[in-house]
Design a protein around this nucleic acid. Structure first.
Lengths: 203, 203
DNA sequence: GTCTATATGTCGATAGAC
DNA sequence: GTCTATCGACATATAGAC
């Protein structure tokens, strides 16, 4: 990881410093209004300061986006590595992946929400780096699905389409959480596993 | 419908006039770069003209977004009404809904892609009107799911979460199509039905 | 209907006082 | 570390010639 702030941001210390406050406000605004429509004046206003003062804590607005997206992407990558290296059947690994998405979405709803659409506003070379991380994550996901299909635990289906289908839902989780708050991670995970893995139609 | 262009746009005449060319270029750019980051100069440039000339065919950039989003929303609403009024079991209706999303995503990938995230850039009162249409669509979707659960055709599950899960995937369909082109609508629909309705895990 | 020229506003970012 | 003041770039949209 090329960003020393990553763990700091995601572990969200109890007494956030100015940098953490700025990132938090930026995440909320980027999510609500989109990155290009969010002005540095808005971010400053959320913290009761002037726009110029922000530049004592950051280099640019673009840096804020980068420092939100990469810690999230790294957290997903680390989670995937841990799950792939661990024991368990492919089905159990898929359940762990669902839980990973649920937990990160609950812990950092605004930052996680940005991976749905705001990553397109990254500038090079960060944009390519981000896409690369996403592709690797999807490939790992597909590998687990293929293992499940080859071992007979899962029905045979187009693995690319299955990855797309499951990840489309998991990426949208922050939207779901903001509309229906107060659900537990375990409950949400088990409902998602039912819907995503076991299907709705009765046999 | 308050917009006389709607059917015209979605039916995409074989010899598109200037207005249709502008909407088509705008949709492609709004999708690729986002609405706020797309400039009217870019749209004009795609058609080999100057930005000022665009204003002979439109009132504002905002109007372009509106004239792309509402025809799409209306097409989904009309499709839903037709399916709900028709015959068939809840499961068959769900399959028809999947096909509706597949066909609209294939016919108008750029415009349909905008309903994923760009609708937030609508201005009032259009924003409220759009959200209302979306909520009604989701309620109809939920009603069909509940009918399936009550009649024993579907497993009992949280209907709100099921709607969220299925629609998250269907809304992302344009992304899937741009990455894996060349698939037939019927093939894509049947794979999605397998993945979304029947589940992956073998019993 | 398209052009050049421009009005008007806001953006991200910097300079320099305190 | 926060402020006021401001720069230069670029945005949407308009005016008016052709």
């Amino acid at each position: 990881m090329n960003n020393p702030l990553a763990t700091e941001v995601l572990e969200q210390s109890v007494l956030p410093g100015r940098k953490e406050q700025i990132l938090s406000a930026a995440a909320r605004l980027f999510r609500k209004k989109g990155f290009p429509s969010t002005t540095v004046r808005m971010i400053a206003s959320e913290l009761g300061m002037e726009a110029a003062s922000l530049y004592n804590h950051m280099a640019s607005k673009q840096e804020l986006l980068k420092n939100l997206l990469f810690p999230v992407a790294t957290a997903f990558t680390r989670g995937m590595e841990k799950i792939m290296a661990g024991k368990g059947s492919p089905v159990e690994k898929l359940e762990k992946l669902v839980l990973l998405h649920v937990e990160l979405a609950m812990k950092h709803p605004d930052a996680v929400a940005l991976i749905l659409g705001e990553w397109i506003h990254l500038e090079e070379p960060d944009l390519q780096a981000f896409i690369r991380m996403r592709t690797e994550y999807e490939n790992s996901f597909k590998k687990i699905l293929e293992q499940g299909m080859n071992s007979g635990l899962l029905h045979h289906a187009d693995p690319d389409l299955a990855v797309f289908s499951i990840l489309s839902t998991l990426h949208a989780l922050p939207n779901r959480l903001s509309r229906h708050p107060g659900i537990s991670a375990e409950k949400l995970k088990s409902e998602l596993v039912k819907s995503l893995l076991h299907g709705l139609v009765r046999n």
